[in-house]
Design a binder for these strands. Structure first.
Lengths: 203, 203
DNA sequence: TAATCTACCAAACACTTGTTAGGGAAGGGT
DNA sequence: ACCCTTCCCTAACAAGTGTTTGGTAGATTA
């Protein structure tokens, strides 16, 4: 029976996570394709070949980064959706949760934004397509409920509205920097104010 | 004195434009870095080396694609800005003009969206940074005028609002397909309706 | 008809890429 | 003292990259 096995595996997992973190940042900064494994290794203070002690391939690093992010994202989303709030409150909670995820996983979100379109076609990244379907379903049904309950406008193309709301939230990852003057919650509040009430003065 | 010189140069320019068009589409679909010159050549029905009869390098193709797009974009923007409309009408005209540009140059816009962040640091693409500065100035001043004239809300962070409006417009290039059921003007109308008045029902 | 030019091909170049194989230093376990 | 695992390095590989060179069929010009 092996003694003292657990300490090593957690240490290994910690190192793994550390390397994935630096890889995510380099991917986010230069793009996946333009990022060489040597550059990731440089950033981590080791040599390129050494990465292959921890990971099977460059692609598997990308996969693990995106999987980890999406898993945590859906943890938050599912909690919101399970609360069975009204449509407006659901939308507010989803947006706020999204900005929190951007705060926590900004590199992964940036990568997702830039690369997901081309990745979804690969079998390996089929989970991205499934996530997108769930995503669209969650948002669209919230919007539909809102229209039915007369809290959202009925004169808008809902699919267009969905893309509008989705994009306005996630593109923020391209300029957001954690530790800035706005907290995720504050940014969410302003975004919601614009999306819900518009930027024009009411008369 | 050379006779019959002009027909050739216009034919050459036409071929150039043709090749730039296919290059732009491949760039937009797979990303600049992931696009090989061989794939562009395949798409055009020639061999990779033959591209170098028309262009200096892969990078110069990218530069010409983006320059052409930005030149036409600013033609439209400058016309709008020169009209000296009120802030709300200026915003409406700029948004509408943007969607028309997306309709005309959707490949170039998609490339710009995905690659500009990394390109601006290169000397060769310094014109992107200049364009971004003019862009921010045009939009921000319009928003500021709107706040001063009490047609836009005064309680919003203007820089956040600027990024919001900017992003909501341009990310549309990632899903917009010309010839769809919505014309650029119709999409602009719906976007403006959401941005100006919000998606919530007014009470 | 001969000369020239246009737009392409064929084949190679130098370089970078992701990845692999073998080795070795450090350190805890027995 | 020895072994074994962990984590990294050194050095190389094969495939793919952007680009160059020399050549050539066919149209255009003189």
């Amino acid at each position: 029976m092996p003694t003292k096995k657990k300490p090593q595996v957690t240490a290994a997992a910690a190192r793994r996570g550390e390397l994935l973190g630096t890889a995510a940042e380099v991917f986010a900064e230069h793009g996946y394709n333009a990022t060489t494994v040597r550059r990731i290794a440089d950033h981590a203070g080791i040599l390129a070949g050494s990465l292959y002690y921890h990971f099977d391939s460059k692609e598997s690093m990308l996969e693990e980064i995106l999987r980890t992010f999406l898993d945590e994202l859906w943890d938050g989303y599912d909690t919101v959706l399970a609360s069975r709030l009204g449509p407006r409150e659901t939308l507010e909670a989803l947006v706020t949760e999204s900005f929190r995820e951007i705060d926590r996983h900004r590199a992964a979100v940036a990568i997702y934004q830039k690369e997901s379109r081309q990745l979804v076609t690969q079998d390996r990244f089929a989970f991205l397509a499934e996530s997108q379907r769930r995503f669209e379903k969650a948002w669209l049904s919230t919007l539909e409920r809102g229209v039915a309950e007369r809290v959202f406008r009925a004169d808008l193309d809902l699919r267009l509205t969905y893309r509008f709301v989705r994009d306005t939230v996630w593109v923020a990852a391209s300029w957001y920097r954690p530790g800035g003057k706005h907290s995720p919650e504050e940014i969410a509040r302003q975004y919601l104010s614009m999306v819900l009430d518009g930027i024009a003065v009411r008369e």
